[in-house]
Design a binder for these strands. Structure first.
Lengths: 84, 84
DNA sequence: TATCATTTGTGCGTATGTATA
DNA sequence: ATATACATACGCACAAATGAT
């Protein structure tokens, strides 16, 4: 279930980020939908919160999501993407 | 801005430590003032967190600062130094 | 009003692996 | 082998804001 390979040369945080991107692209996570919290990711993938945070920070830097303190992180609107 | 010279024979962590000492001596960082966090130093100087940590550890060994776990690192009182 | 759970923000402690000189 | 430096990853603790009760 975790789908995380700790032996892979690809860092864990990037693997998690990639999986979330996949969910965004598939439509499972539409625009403005809250993505799983850091704690949720921590449990789901069996990683440390710092690692989950790193994955989210990466998604933010890549423009996939935006974060609202104390509320959560949400899927960002992109040019050429369908709205919810 | 970084004022860090990676080509210098002086290790990066010592250069950072020296800059902080300068700020303490100039009064920019008075006694009991919290010095920049490891993350802040990491960003400010464009170094790895381990390097920033090394710089802070060095300052601690030299008696310039003291660290309170989970709270931060603060400027230590010195004999002959003015209080804040 | 007060309390509680949730969630992000911040900060340090530690360890491993890699690379270079 | 040692010192330096970076990237990654796990752990722990506390703060602050939000939302629900």
């Amino acid at each position: 279930m975790p789908e995380i390979d700790h032996e892979s040369p690809t860092p864990v945080y990037r693997q998690i980020a990639a999986l979330i991107v996949k969910e965004i692209e598939s439509g499972a996570l539409p625009v403005n939908r809250k993505i799983p919290s850091e704690s949720a990711l921590t449990q789901r993938f069996g990683v440390a919160r710092t690692t989950a945070r790193h994955a989210v920070a990466h998604l933010r830097e890549e423009g996939w999501v935006f974060t609202v303190p104390q509320r959560g992180t949400f899927v960002k609107e992109r040019a050429g993407a369908d709205d919810d």
